[in-house]
Structure formats: structure tokens, C-alpha cells
Design a binder for these strands. Structure first.
Lengths: 226, 226
DNA sequence: CCGTCAAGGATTTTCGAAACTATTGCCTTC
DNA sequence: GAAGGCAATAGTTTCGAAAATCCTTGACGG
């Protein structure tokens, strides 16, 4: 049987993705109470898949649970944002350092490829509808994943994934608020170049700065909105 | 529904604890396939609580899931052990450093208290039945938690908790194999003393060494048994 | 003899209703 | 008018069985 890439998704997986997307897109607001009846409608499933999705989301910090009192979307706060950011800086820096140390040419090639795809979208991004933005998000995530992909630590990768997901949620809450027009493109390019020439010090510094700028931008909005 | 104090535990919580304990105690072996029928019997509940428990356990790395093919206890390996260990060293060292930096007298007091309770059990431990060992495990965990309790980072604490749980699983698989009779008591005392006198460098070094020795011991067994 | 395919059994996944808990609003009592 | 208890309601949690999926077995054809 040739079953490569033929992954069977359960309804629970589907529900998980949909609820997660609804939170990222703002359809479900931070702090909002989540009723099973609504989520069943949103995900077009029954109570069991919704419950499994919420259990997973809670374990990852996207929702909160109070026994017998139901779930709610995890609230946002400046404090939480910076807590996530600092740890992300710590862990992804370490992961990048390890990647630079262990990565082979194959890794380099993958990384350059991911970066190329990202730059291709950067050009068009500004005036495209949100549907294309979705695509940019994917490629952006892929690039950051590719940076640390060679770190050789499953555990570390898992933590980094979780943190970037939570950080991305914050970032997407502040879409459209570009007070400080950054040159994100060159930030990405500089990180890439330092990484390729195996300059771990510079690369990790740039990465941390990259994260910090985003966080400052999001924090700005957060203080106005909440 | 089981009510303890004013905290209401759901059957799913109960199932989670029971399955987790069964894995730690060796009742459920690494790699073993988990059938819902067995777990329903073990936890004395129905399919829904078992499913929720497994979802949580999977998110925490204790079990694994293959869509439509069921769950199994996460296998153990030397590689996984060291992956967990290295990250635990990284994260708990950082957390301890932050704790030493931010902790007040109240934290110190709590820490000393937790250590005292631990030493009280150390004396008797050797010749006590496994029931009392359970108590020692609790106090041991409490001491390590108290060390980093003042680190001011919810995210970091969460990661540390997860890693120590996974590390403890490994350690408990090798109970009874004390080839290298360590003086764990003095290791704990030295860590405590360095921490109290706010000597972060020494404290983190000792902590890392403490973890590493345990890992070496476990690894020894692992290579013989699996 | 080897590989492919289908049927049957075993197991997971999903559903809808029942059981249970928390909250709300009303009524009584002080 | 306020406080406390009681009933009704809204919501979560749990159950047991139906549906869907995977795995095994054995027959068939090349």
C-alpha cells in the first residue's frame, strides 16, 4: 500500500484546527466563554470531537478550563505576552545555535528554499486579501521552523512550536496596526545570512531582536485595546 | 463526581491520574498498546473520560497517538532520556537563576520548609514499603518545585513541570537499581545552601550535576533492560 | 509460490441522550 | 428591604451504543 502523506484526520483534528483558526482570526475573542452548542455548530461536529479539541487547546495554553464551569478562550495580557516572548527568545536562540552547530547542507538547502518562498510573498503581500495572508502566515512559520529544524532535540522543537503558536496568536490580534513600519524582509534576510555563514552569535542576536520588535508592536496595541 | 475540598474533580481528571500512576508504577509498560476496554476497567469509567485522559497524556508526552490506530505508552530510549535531561538542565537552571534573583524571604522560608520535610523522609526511606515511597516522591517533587517557584514565569514553570514529570517516569522505571550509592541527601542540602546564600552559579551547577547523575543511573538500567 | 483482494472481526471514533452540576431568579422570612 | 433557601434553567460531563476505520485471515489469480 502506497500511503505516503495519506494522513487520516479524525473529526477531532478537524475541530481542533477550526477552533484554533477561529481564535486566531478573531472570530473567538480572548476571554470569551465557549459553549459546546456554539462550537458544535462552528465545527459541524458533535460534542465528543469538540471536547477533545478543547482538551488539546487547553494543554497548549490557548484555552482555559474550570471544572464543570466550562472553557473560555485564554485571556491576553501584556504580562503573558512578555512571558511568552522571553522564553521564546531563550529557547529559539538555543535551538538556532544547536541547528547551526549540527545542520548539514541539506538543512541549509531547505532553509534557503523556505526563505525564498517567503520573499516571493513579501512583495505582493501588502495589497492582498486575507486569504493570501493565510498563505504568508504558513510560509513565515515554515521559515522560522526551518531555522531550528536541525537542532536535534525533539523536546526543544516541541516547546518552540508551542511558543511560536502562542506568540502568533498575539501578533494576529494586532494585524493592521503597523505604527512602526518595519522592514521585516531585511530582518529575515539578515537572520538567514548570519545562519548560513554559521555565525551563531549574530544570528541569535538578530533573531531575538526580531521577536522583540514584534512583541513591542503587539504590546502597543494591547494596551490600547484591553 | 468526587469532591475534595471545594475543588471538583471530574471523572476525566480521575482517569488521568490513574492511568498516569499506572504508567509510573510499571503496571503499564513503555510501548504497550492501550485498549479502551482495558483502560475503562482500570479507571472504572466509560470511554469519554478515558479519551480525555489520553488526549492530555499525549499532549504531555506520556502517550502517543496514531489516528484511528489507537494510543500506546510512549516508548523509552536512551536518546529520549538525554533529550529530556539536557532541556531540563537548561530550563531549570534558568528558572533557578531567576528564582534566586527575584525570590523574597517568603520564598526562602517555603524552600527551607520543603527541604526539611524531605530530609525527614530520607532517613526512614530505605526500609519502607512502596506506599511510603509515594510520599517521598511527593516531597522530592515539592522540593524541586520550591526551588524554582519564584522565577516569575508561568511559561517556564509549566515547561519545567512537564520535563520533571517525564524525567521522573524514567527514574521510577529504574527503582531498586542503585549500583552507584549516591548521597542524594547531601546533594539536596548543597543545592539548598547555595540557593539560600544566593550563589546562582554554584546552585545551578550543582542542580545540573544532580540531574545528570540520576540520568546516568537510569541510562545504565535502560541499556540492560531495553 | 507470491501477491492482491475481499470478508469478517476487533478497535477506535462519533453520536445523541441521560445524568449531573452550577447559576439564576423567585419566593419566603426576618 | 435584605438575606437565605428553593425551584427552574442553562450548561457541562458522562454513558452506551452506532458508525467508521483498521487489521487479520483466507481465498483466488497470476
Amino acid at each position: 500500500m502506497i500511503a505516503i502523506g495519506d494522513v487520516t484526520r479524525t473529526l477531532a483534528d478537524e475541530a481542533y484546527s477550526r477552533i484554533r483558526d477561529a481564535m486566531h482570526s478573531g472570530r473567538l475573542q480572548p476571554g470569551q466563554k465557549l459553549r459546546f452548542s456554539e462550537l458544535q455548530e462552528l465545527t459541524d461536529t458533535s460534542v465528543t470531537p469538540v471536547r477533545e479539541a478543547l482538551t488539546r487547546l487547553t494543554a497548549e495554553g490557548f484555552t482555559e478550563l474550570e471544572g464543570h464551569r466550562g472553557y473560555r478562550v485564554a485571556p491576553v495580557s501584556s504580562q503573558d505576552l512578555w512571558d511568552i516572548l522571553r522564553n521564546r527568545q531563550r529557547l529559539e536562540s538555543e535551538a538556532l545555535r544547536l541547528s547551526i552547530q549540527h545542520g548539514d547542507e541539506n538543512w541549509e538547502a531547505q532553509l534557503i528554499s523556505a526563505h525564498h518562498l517567503l520573499t516571493r510573498m513579501d512583495r505582493e503581500r501588502a495589497d492582498l486579501p486575507t486569504a493570501a495572508d493565510e498563505q504568508w502566515e504558513k510560509r513565515h512559520a515554515a521559515f522560522h521552523e526551518a531555522l531550528i529544524a536541525a537542532c536535534q532535540s525533539k523536546v526543544l522543537l516541541g516547546f518552540c512550536n508551542q511558543l511560536s503558536a502562542r506568540a502568533n496568536r498575539y501578533r494576529r490580534l494586532s494585524v493592521g496596526v503597523d505604527d512602526v513600519p518595519r522592514d521585516v524582509r531585511s530582518e529575515h534576510r539578515n537572520i538567514l545570512e548570519a545562519t548560513i555563514r554559521r555565525d551563531a552569535e549574530t544570528a541569535t542576536d538578530l533573531l531575538q531582536e526580531h521577536f522583540e520588535r514584534t512583541a513591542r508592536m503587539v504590546d502597543e496595541l494591547l494596551r490600547h485595546k484591553w
